[in-house]
Nucleic acid binder design. Structure first.
Lengths: 220, 220
DNA sequence: AGGAAGTTGGGCCACCCGGCCCATTCTCAC
DNA sequence: GTGAGAATGGGCCGGGTGGCCCAACTTCCT
């Protein structure tokens, strides 16, 4: 018997996933509506597997995965997302996800991945791609074995950068963000510059959109 | 027996909806992955009801609803969305939707709404809110009976404005958009100005985000 | 101890952007 | 046929924005 926790902010998806899991013989211990709740419920319910959505309020799925993986290194986490972005996939796996699936996947794929993951494959990244390969063309490079996660991408954003980009997305101008954070407008612009660099954007609009796709920004 | 067509770009949701519908005794004639496909399949399969997602590639759910409603005025369309925006709700109902639900809804709500809608209530807006009222606080104003849809919002965007905003979202600058459309940069700025006005945005970033929430813009 | 990264801040400058006026043309509806 | 709305364009201007330099301080890891 395998126990599982489902974290997704859409009740519709949660119910659908629960049902599919239960039909496959898994036991759904609980459902979380955001990342923070997921972290809390894992400590409380001790599931053997977590199904985690990326875009969630309060605490995003990636960050929730990072925290869960830090606290429970052996807990398998299957990350589910709306947008199939290569960078996001890497982010998820680097955060400690055992597998990465798109919502374009079928219910069967999700269940199969969940069961396989819970069975305890050691090589996380390999598993994710091998399962996905059955449905799509092979993604990209196969990293070597071990812990080295490959220096593919520089990194996403620092906490401060995320905070600033979130405020920009919320509609604040550079100087308004500065005022809210009690820092200089120049500093905000400097942060934005490094954000553009990291997200490969050339202006705030593209940066915000990119962040939305990645799932590190809330749409209010 | 009631026949239904499901339009959603996420296979996961489609399967979940199909299952819930079938369990409730409805017959799912087919599934569409985008708005254009939905329009085509309606003509082909002649369902008695359509479940339509808002954010879909190729042709958005709102526009698809508008076209379906124009071609089949009696066809009930239940619009489903990620983001619970009052403006979007109005948009959907104005486009001819019979009901409006969020993905925060439960499967039961969706099925109940579908069945009630298919049963053929005349007062569309009323129905949507009355059903939602059982779960949330009453939304807002109850419009009078009849066809007058109330002059609540001015209107969304003109085709040209949507096109321009889409290009902005795709990463083009004002002058690049102008070059692509063979018009003056000043004209693009003028269109943007009226877009800001209509979407209540003060810059392109907010306008694009607003459009994304409304579902009239693709995220590439 | 030393280096890397994050946060804060500066100056400078060209250019873009948004706000506020305006006019012309075309189409469509009343 | 008159008027409303859409699409096209103009000028002007102040302030915001992004690019490209640089520096200081803190924290953290090695």
């Amino acid at each position: 018997m395998t126990t599982v926790l489902i974290a997704d902010d859409h009740q519709l998806l949660r119910q659908a996933l629960r049902r599919a899991m239960e039909d496959a013989g898994l036991v759904v211990l609980g459902e979380a509506g955001d990342g923070a709740e997921a972290v809390q419920l894992v400590d409380q319910l001790r599931p053997e597997l977590v199904i985690m959505d990326v875009t969630m309020p309060v605490l995003g799925g990636i960050e929730a995965t990072r925290r869960l993986h830090a606290a429970h290194p052996d807990l398998p986490i299957v990350v589910l997302t709306m947008h199939d972005e290569e960078a996001l996939r890497e982010e998820a796996l680097r955060a400690g996800a055992s597998a990465f699936l798109t919502k374009d996947s079928s219910m069967q794929e999700v269940v199969a991945t969940a069961i396989a993951t819970a069975a305890g494959e050691a090589l996380s990244a390999e598993l994710a791609s091998s399962i996905l390969t059955e449905f799509k063309a092979a993604p990209a490079a196969a990293a070597g074995p071990g812990a080295a996660v490959a220096p593919v991408e520089p990194s996403p954003l620092t906490p401060r950068e995320e905070q600033i980009l979130q405020l920009i997305a919320d509609g604040y101008s550079t100087s308004e963000v500065a005022a809210r954070l009690f820092i200089s407008g120049k500093t905000v612009k400097n942060h934005l510059a490094s954000i553009y660099d990291k997200l490969d954007a050339r202006d705030r609009t593209q940066a915000v959109l990119s962040a939305v796709r990645i799932g590190i920004i809330r749409l209010n």
